[in-house]
Computed example of a mutant assay.
Amino acid sequence: MEKYSRLRDLVSQLVGLELVEAPAVSDTQILYAHDPSYLIKILSGNLSPKEQQEIGFPWSELMVERSRRSAGATLAAAKVALNEGLAANLAGGTHHAYRDKGGGFCVFNDSAIAARALQKEISPHLKIAIIDLDVHQGNGTAAILENDSSIFTLSIHGENNFPFTKERSDLDVGLPDKTGDATYLATLHQSLEILDMSFKPNCIIFLAGADPHEGDRLGKLSLTQEGMRQRDEAVFQYGLDRQIPIAFSMAGGYGREIQSTVDIHFQTILTALQFEKQYG
């Protein structure tokens, strides 16, 4: 949790960037992606010990409020991006939350909620791509959106990493341990080409996880900091070339040194700022 406050402190020093308090998603917006029975359990605190263990932390009113705001920030960023080109949630990326259960430190699935809310509240014609570059497969996102042809789910992740039972995204690429920069970046470019040929999105939600980095305790993919920068640049360049708005979230990051994770997340923000002014 400490990475979030450290990242915010760094971002607050940047000129030309506006920090806005994260709004909370409503019950109605949560229900675009989650079952009513699950929402009731979360709101009332009636999660079993096993369900709380699967999420990874105990229930509390503050946990519910934080989860609402984490999802709300991704939706707010997406709405800003539609007008301005790029916007970020300094948390988010809670892609292990399923329609009817949480998991892996994820309570509500912010990407699925945001995508569905954009279609309900902005335009039903939005074709949204969720580009998930966290080192762990976006299993909850894939399961929630599996039969939704209007939202494309792309996940590039460690094949031998959590979750050990994978779901089916529209495009899944599982990579071996110690993949490194060259193979990862080639895979990403190829995946973006497939996305462009098969779907042609007009809005992107990007999960910019820091955990593929070589300094991550859980990542195993061994990307350098420069490789991580080129990863982010590839996604932002893809969006810029096609004038596709991008909302991005920080997602995972578990560095052996917490500052290394903060530095990767901050680098993503700095990379985005280099593109922000080029959006027309």
Results as ranks from 00 to 15, higher is better:
residue 163 P to E: 08
residue 82 L to C: 05
residue 101 K to W: 00
residue 176 P to Y: 05
residue 161 N to S: 11
residue 67 S to Y: 00
residue 196 D to L: 02
residue 175 L to Q: 04
residue 158 G to Y: 01
residue 220 K to S: 12
residue 206 F to T: 09
residue 187 T to F: 00
residue 189 H to E: 14
residue 132 D to Q: 08
residue 7 L to R: 07
residue 149 S to K: 14
residue 148 D to F: 06
residue 159 E to W: 07
residue 171 L to G: 06
residue 12 S to T: 06
residue 69 R to E: 04
residue 72 G to T: 00
residue 230 Q to S: 09
residue 66 R to N: 01
residue 248 F to N: 01
residue 47 L to W: 08
residue 246 I to T: 07
residue 117 A to M: 03
residue 149 S to D: 14
residue 40 I to Q: 15
residue 157 H to P: 02
residue 24 A to S: 15
residue 269 I to P: 09
residue 51 E to P: 03
residue 60 S to I: 04
residue 13 Q to M: 11
residue 30 I to D: 00
residue 152 F to Y: 15
residue 60 S to T: 13
residue 220 K to A: 11
residue 152 F to L: 05
residue 81 A to I: 03
residue 93 G to P: 07
residue 14 L to E: 15
residue 121 E to M: 03
residue 16 G to L: 02
residue 200 K to V: 07
residue 250 M to D: 03
residue 144 I to L: 09
residue 275 F to V: 04
residue 256 R to E: 14
residue 59 W to H: 14
residue 30 I to F: 00
residue 226 E to D: 14
residue 236 F to D: 09
residue 139 N to Q: 09
residue 99 R to W: 02
residue 89 N to G: 04
residue 256 R to A: 11
residue 141 T to V: 10
residue 203 C to H: 15
residue 226 E to A: 12
residue 51 E to I: 01
residue 71 A to D: 00
residue 134 D to E: 12
residue 198 S to C: 04
residue 250 M to H: 04
residue 2 E to H: 13
residue 148 D to Y: 09
residue 73 A to E: 02
residue 195 L to S: 08
residue 172 D to Y: 02
residue 192 L to S: 08
residue 141 T to S: 11
residue 9 D to T: 06
residue 130 I to A: 11
residue 109 N to V: 01
residue 52 Q to F: 00
residue 141 T to Q: 05
residue 95 H to Y: 07
residue 134 D to S: 11
residue 181 D to Q: 10
residue 160 N to V: 00
residue 59 W to D: 02
residue 100 D to H: 12
residue 47 L to R: 12
residue 193 E to Q: 14
residue 105 F to W: 14
residue 263 D to K: 06
residue 163 P to H: 07
residue 103 G to Q: 05
residue 72 G to A: 01
residue 15 V to K: 15
residue 171 L to R: 13
residue 167 E to H: 10
residue 26 S to V: 00
residue 223 L to H: 11
residue 135 V to N: 10
residue 73 A to H: 03
residue 185 L to D: 13
residue 46 N to W: 04
residue 229 R to A: 12
residue 242 R to V: 02
residue 36 P to C: 03
residue 19 L to V: 05
residue 49 P to M: 04
residue 38 Y to K: 07
residue 264 I to M: 02
residue 73 A to N: 06
residue 63 M to K: 11
residue 271 T to G: 09
residue 14 L to Y: 09
residue 97 A to E: 03
residue 50 K to R: 13
residue 119 Q to V: 02
residue 110 D to W: 01
residue 2 E to W: 05
residue 107 V to W: 00
residue 92 G to A: 08
residue 88 A to P: 13
residue 102 G to S: 05
residue 138 G to H: 05
residue 83 N to F: 00
residue 157 H to N: 06
residue 120 K to R: 14
residue 118 L to C: 13
residue 187 T to K: 09
residue 86 L to W: 11
residue 138 G to C: 09
residue 167 E to Q: 15
residue 279 Y to G: 07
residue 7 L to T: 05
residue 172 D to M: 02
residue 204 I to A: 04
residue 95 H to E: 07
residue 250 M to V: 10
residue 94 T to E: 04
residue 133 L to S: 11
residue 47 L to C: 08
residue 266 F to A: 04
residue 67 S to K: 02
residue 262 V to H: 06
residue 105 F to A: 03
residue 256 R to S: 12
residue 129 A to G: 10
residue 146 E to L: 07
residue 47 L to V: 03
residue 199 F to I: 03
residue 275 F to G: 07
residue 42 I to W: 09
residue 138 G to V: 00
residue 263 D to F: 08
